[in-house]
């Protein structure tokens, strides 16, 4: 055990102050502004059908995006860890693109491909009756894109650590590929998956830039909660903006807190 020197306390103090000024205090102020006039701000947005629609849309888009990202994320993680194939490193690098590219670029590039009028693929889809841009599918796609690597980056290290001996043992005991995955692999990586899901959910709920470009921001139709926050803020409805922002933050923080509490300590696993 290291001796207790003043330096350690100074270091701790710096970290706490830094996090306080950067994260805790601003978030707290959002909450404080929300409850400025009691529950008035919250009541006004809950009673506004357009805001309720936006919140519902955000939640629905987030859930769909999380489901898609979880299924593909676990699949791609298995592919990356358990199989050797040419181009594996390239694939791994490509998977980080969504984290490094600005969401607004994601939005623009989706419009270029799926845009109804001038898009590369859009008019064909529109002829078939499927509208992507300025509609829910586009919002889901943009959200899936930006949150794509989160599950993978959580699951890959866990898969590597667990190794494949348990899977081989299951195969030798008669389990087929699906049974091995369901009974052995999935339980072994469940906390990695859970954490990935929570991060994806938080990220998906909060996506703004890409969604703003592809959604068209139509009130009561394709306006998501984050867009409502911007709209209200620009229209000097600060109370409503804070209240909506507070709800968004609440869901994300709650999800992370719940998982942190449920997640077993390292030695219990």
């Amino acid at each position: 055990m290291a001796e207790r020197r003043p330096g350690r306390y100074v270091a701790r103090l710096i970290v706490v102050v830094y996090l306080f000024l950067l994260v805790a205090w601003p978030l707290f102020l959002v909450g404080q502004n929300t409850f400025d006039g009691g529950l008035e701000n919250l009541r006004s947005i809950v009673e506004d059908p357009d805001v309720v629609h936006a919140l519902r849309l955000s939640l629905m888009v987030a859930v769909i995006a999380v489901v898609i990202n979880t299924v593909f994320g676990v699949g791609i993680s298995l592919l990356l860890v358990r199989y050797e194939f040419p181009g594996k490193r390239l694939l791994s690098a490509l998977l980080d693109v969504p984290l490094s590219v600005s969401p607004i670029v994601v939005g623009l590039s989706l419009v270029l491909v799926y845009g109804g009028r001038n898009g590369w693929f859009g008019p064909t889809l529109e002829d078939a009756g499927i509208q992507v841009i300025f509609a829910t599918p586009g919002i889901v796609m943009a959200t899936v894109f930006v949150a794509l690597p989160l599950v993978i980056r959580e699951v890959v290290p866990v898969l590597e650590e667990v190794g494949d001996e348990q899977e081989q043992a299951a195969r030798s005991l008669g389990a087929n590929g699906f049974q091995t995955f369901w009974r052995i692999t999935l339980p072994a990586i469940k906390w990695g998956v859970t954490y990935g899901v929570v991060l994806s959910l938080a990220r998906s709920l909060g996506e703004f830039g890409a969604v703003k470009v592809v959604s068209g921001n139509v009130l009561g139709e394709t306006r998501t909660a984050t867009l409502v926050v911007e709209e209200k803020y620009l229209n000097f409805d600060k109370g409503g903006a804070y209240a909506t922002a507070f709800l968004l933050a609440l869901v994300a923080v709650a999800a992370i807190v719940v998982v942190s509490v449920l997640r077993p300590k390292e030695e219990d696993r």
């Binding site: 001996e165 348990q166 081989q168 043992a169 299951a170 195969r171 030798s172 005991l173 008669g174 389990a175 087929n176 052995i184 339980p187 072994a188 696993r269």
Partner: peptide
């Protein structure tokens, strides 16, 4: 034949116990 159809028992050096 894949391993699950061979009806062999396999014991690994590092046990490969199902930890959960």
């Amino acid at each position: 034949l894949p391993p699950q159809k061979r009806n062999v028992g396999f014991v690994f050096q590092h046990y490969a116990a199902f930890k959960h």
